[in-house]
Computed example of a mutant assay.
Amino acid sequence: MINSYLTIKKAGHSEISIKKSVFICSIARTKNEDEARTFIAKTKAVYPKANHNCFAYVIGEHNEIQRESDNGEPSGTAGVPILEVLKKNDLKDVTAVVTRFFGGIKLGTGGLIRAYTQSTVSTITAIGIVKCVLQKIIYLEVSYSQHNRLKIFLEQNNITLIKADFAAVVTLQVSVASTETIAFKESVIDFLNARVTFKEGPERYVEVDYD
């Protein structure tokens, strides 16, 4: 598993008009090719009278799967521009479909490339991008006398507190970036200057805002 990756914040779509042609870019997260194909098919079904439904998707930790289609537009004028936008934004596990309703005015090769690029960029900008960070669940067992101090430490260091259990000892469940696990433990020990027991849980991806 990679330490972090970028993807879209949510599924959505937006519309632009260029020389009477309407371009609607629909975009969604897709974890595999089956999900990508399903999303493409559903989008085509929404716009059955469209002249073109061009698409591109990138899937995999290292973008191992990349596909694109011009769907009847001149070769290289639609699918590739859509794919390039996804790659330039370093997005993973995303499928974009740009639907075109022809307005009667030909845009030419350069015009088509710019139109499909602009449509995809506009939608990604409107929806937003998030960073998915690989984090590890850690359980910290401390005495009741150290509980409040540990909470202060977590707040000062922006560590996410998931849950607190109060039994013979206090057990706090937190989420820490996997790459910072060792440093986190050392910092807690230094801060408390007291006995603390750590237990590691599973890893998971947590979404954070990306500027």
Score class of each variant (00 low, 15 high):
V121C: 01
S143L: 10
S143C: 13
I113L: 11
I113T: 12
I124S: 01
N148W: 04
I124K: 01
I137Q: 11
I113M: 12
I127F: 08
V121G: 00
A115Y: 06
R149T: 12
K136S: 14
Y116G: 07
I137S: 02
E141G: 04
L112S: 04
L134F: 08
Y116V: 12
Y116C: 06
L150V: 04
R114Y: 03
T117M: 09
Y144T: 10
V130A: 06
Y139G: 02
R149K: 12
S122D: 15
H147Q: 14
G111W: 09
G128P: 10
S119Y: 00
G111R: 12
K136D: 06
L134M: 07
Y116H: 02
I137A: 12
T117W: 06
Y139S: 10
I129D: 06
A126Y: 04
Q146G: 06
I127W: 02
I124T: 05
V142R: 00
L112P: 03
S122Y: 06
T120L: 06
I152M: 09
Q118F: 09
Y139V: 00
H147D: 11
I113W: 01
I129H: 04
T123H: 05
L140D: 02
Q118Y: 09
Y139N: 11
S122L: 08
G111A: 15
I137D: 10
I137R: 03
Y139E: 09
N148E: 08
R149Q: 13
I127Q: 02
Q135E: 13
T117S: 14
K131R: 14
R114E: 07
V130D: 04
K131M: 07
A126E: 14
L140T: 13
A126F: 01
I127D: 04
I137F: 07
E141I: 01
I127G: 04
L150R: 01
N148Q: 14
Q135I: 07
A126G: 11
K131L: 10
G128K: 10
I113D: 02
N148P: 05
Y144D: 08
I138P: 00
R149M: 11
V142M: 08
G128W: 02
Q146D: 13
I113C: 11
